[in-house]
Structures are given as C-alpha cells and as structure tokens.
Simulated scan of single mutants.
Amino acid sequence: MSIDSAYFLLFLIALVAMMAQLLIRPVRTENILFAILCASLVMVALQTLTAQVSSPYQYVFALGTCATCNVVWLISRAMFRDSDSIKLRHYIVAIIIALLVISSRSIDLLVSVEWLSQDNISWLKRSIGEVTQLLSSTVLALAFWESVKNFSAATKPAKVQRVLFATTFFAGVFSCTVIVQGFISETEQSTLRPWFVVCSAIAIITCIWMVLVLQHLERKAVASVEDVANEPQENKQDQLLLQQLESLIIDQKIFLRPDVKMIDLANLLSVSEYKVSRIIRHATTANNFNQYINRFRVEYAKQLLIEKQSQHWTVLVISMESGFASLAPFNRAFKAQVGCTPNQFRSRHLIDSLDKPLPA
C-alpha cells in the first residue's frame, strides 16, 4: 500500500465516522466535537493527497486542519467527565490553537501566491509555530490525563473505555513523536513519519468512535430500565387523567359545543395540551382529538334518532344538537363509527320496533 492509499483510507474512515454522527439521537456535545475532528482529518487527508500532485488546493485544504489535537482534548473531557464538563474557557483555548494553525496555514497560502515574501515573514511563521507546538503538546497531555483521572472511581465498563482510549491515544502520540524523532534517522523520517501519522490518526478516531458507541448504548440501556421502572406509575397517572377527562366531557356535556378545542379541556383539567393529546392517542382507540370527541357526539345522536320526542327532527337538526357544526362531518363520523348513515340507523330502529309483538 502506498502512502497515498493510506491517506485515502484515512479520508474514507473520517468521512464515514463524521456522517455516522447524524444517526446518533440525542446528539451530545462529544458527538458534535467528534464530527468536527473527523472533518478536520478529512482536510488533512485532502491536503496531503493534493500536495502529492502539486495542487494549489493543498493550501486551501490546510486551513481546515485546525481542529485536531485541540478538539481531541475537548472530546476527552466530554467523554470522561460530567455533561457540563466543557466551560467557556476550554473552548477559548481550543479556538486560540485553531486560530494559530489557520494563521500559519494562511501565511503558506499567501506565500504560494506570492503575496508575501518567505524571507520577510519567516520570523512570524517560526514564532506562530513554536507557540502552536507548545499549546498543542499541552492539550495532548491533558487529553490523556482526562482518560486516567479518577480511574479508580469509574465503573467497570467506564474503566474499559478509559483504558482503550488511553492506550490508543498514548501509542499514537508516542509513535509520532518519540519513536519518529528519537529512533529514526533524519533521512528516513520524511518517508516513515507520514505512515506513523496516518496510522495513528486512523487508530485514534476509530477508538473514539468505539467509545462513543459504547457510551451511547449504555445510556440507552439505563434509559430503558428507568422507563420500565416508571411505567406502572405513569400508567396509573394516565388512567386517572383519562377518567377525569371523560367525566368532564360527559358530566358537563362539553362535546355538544361545536367549537370545543383540546386546549379548552386541558385548561379545565389544569394540565398541558400535550398530556391530553398523549392520553387520547395512547389510552383510547381514537387517533386524534376530533375523532375522540366525535364518538361522544355520535352516541348522543343515536339516542336522539330513536327517542320519540325527537323522531320528527331532521338529520341536520340532530347533527347540530349533537355538537356537529355541519351535516357532512356528522354523516362521515356516524358512518365510520356505526357502519351506516343516520337515516339508515333510524329506519332500522323503526322497523325493529314495528316487528316487536304488542304486550298482551
């Protein structure tokens, strides 16, 4: 495998890992930061691949390589600390490092287009590089420290995740620095160092991806256990709310009001509209509020259709007396619930009553 193929593999893995974060729900801070890290590594791969063919785009891609070690530090804090582990000061440090990297890459871009002279700007490039190196080394050490800090107090699965990250991260950084600079000759460094860099980058993002997936599965398992534990209490509360809702509708004949809305019932029960909607959808066979309230109206209309004092009423009058605003919705709701039209229902009842024998 050539070094170009290795960087292309890094490009693919980083791109897939970045897109995979779109599937995580709910999205957490570490998922967003990991997506940013992967995007920056995609730029690293593109910069190297375009440099191999002497493309001017390598300097443009280089501007996007500003979120590597600084973002790894933030990810490490987010993974191995509480949810509120990253403060504004941590983001500021990471942004400063990113701006330094962008400044250095911008100088290279301006020199490549001959807007700046390399001789006149070399002191600035060297100064930025030294400060960037110092800050980057510091955050790399902090990223490793986050994984081993409070190790003894962590749970067994968390210890496995910490060891996995710490081992992979240390091996990657150690190989790219100590081994390359201390055990490889200067003539061979230009050839071997890219291999160490790309292999370490692939190993680190794969490791972080694995830890994020393991933590996500743990949170889902805990949430499932909590849902099961809370389910009996929630069911009891739902049944009580449903009883209060139906008592309110029947006792006060609220269904006879054509303009009644779900918010009206929620206000009378002193609960949110969402709770009323959830109860109707989950605790009854109705799909929505209109279907639910129309069932009370249809039952009331059935009584009017067969009672003697309302037998001379037209279907239109009965629909309006039952709470429907017009005849068409009444006919649709009645047929959906009873299986026939109001006129057919009335006719069948009349025929049945005539067929009954007179009392002796």
Score class of each variant (00 low, 15 high):
Val148Met: 08
Thr155Pro: 05
Leu49Val: 09
Glu273Gly: 07
Ile97Met: 10
Ile184Phe: 00
Arg295Ile: 01
Arg332Val: 14
Tyr292Ala: 06
Ala94Tyr: 02
Ala325His: 11
Met1Glu: 11
Tyr91Gln: 04
Asn343Ile: 03
Trp73Ala: 09
Thr155Ser: 15
Thr50Val: 12
Thr177Lys: 00
Val16Ala: 08
Glu226Pro: 12
Ala283Leu: 10
Gln58Asp: 09
Glu188Gly: 04
Glu30Gln: 07
Leu212Trp: 10
Glu218Thr: 09
Ile107Ser: 00
Ile205Arg: 00
Arg346Asn: 03
Val317Cys: 15
Ala223His: 11
Ala203Gly: 03
Tyr7Cys: 04
Ala67Val: 05
Phe255Asn: 03
Ile250Arg: 13
Glu188Asp: 14
Ile128Ser: 05
Leu248His: 14
Leu164Cys: 13
Gly182Cys: 02
Asn70Leu: 07
Ser104Leu: 03
Ala286Ile: 03
Val222Phe: 13
Gly182Ile: 03
Lys275Arg: 12
Trp209Gly: 06
Ala62Gly: 09
His312Phe: 14
Ala325Gly: 12
Ser175Leu: 00
Val173Tyr: 08
Asn31Trp: 09
Gln239Asn: 13
Ser277Asp: 06
Phe144Thr: 10
Arg162His: 11
Ile96Arg: 05
Met320Leu: 15
Ser310Tyr: 07
Val173Leu: 02
Asp259Ser: 13
Phe196Met: 00
Pro157Tyr: 12
Gln233Asp: 15
Arg105Tyr: 08
Ser2Pro: 06
Leu140Thr: 01
Phe34Leu: 05
Ile32Glu: 04
Leu10Val: 15
Thr206His: 04
Thr314Cys: 08
Val53Pro: 02
Phe170Asp: 06
Leu88Tyr: 08
Lys275Val: 07
Met19Pro: 11
Glu218Asp: 12
Gly339Thr: 06
Met1His: 10
Ile179Glu: 03
Leu15Asn: 04
Val42Asn: 09
Arg348Met: 11
Tyr59Thr: 00
Ala141Val: 11
Arg81Ile: 06
Thr284Ser: 02
Ala158Ser: 13
His349Met: 09
Gln291Lys: 10
Pro258Leu: 13
Ala325Glu: 13
Ala51Val: 12
Pro232Cys: 06
Ala35Asn: 02
Arg77Cys: 07
Ser104Tyr: 00
Val53Lys: 12
Trp145Val: 07
Asp82His: 10
Ile96Cys: 14
Ser147Tyr: 09
Ser319Tyr: 07
Thr167Ile: 11
Leu63Glu: 06
Phe174Ser: 00
Ala14Cys: 10
Val271Thr: 05
Pro342Arg: 13
Phe8Val: 12
Ser127Gln: 15
Ala143Val: 10
Ile263Gly: 03
Ala333Thr: 06
Thr132Val: 11
Ala336His: 12
Asn230Phe: 11
Gly182Trp: 02
Ile102Val: 13
Lys159Gln: 14
Ala20Trp: 00
His90Ile: 11
Thr187Pro: 01
Val338Lys: 08
Trp115Cys: 01
Pro194Gln: 02
Leu12His: 07
Arg25Val: 03
Ile95Met: 13
Leu124Gly: 02
Ser175Glu: 00
Pro329Val: 06
Leu327Glu: 09
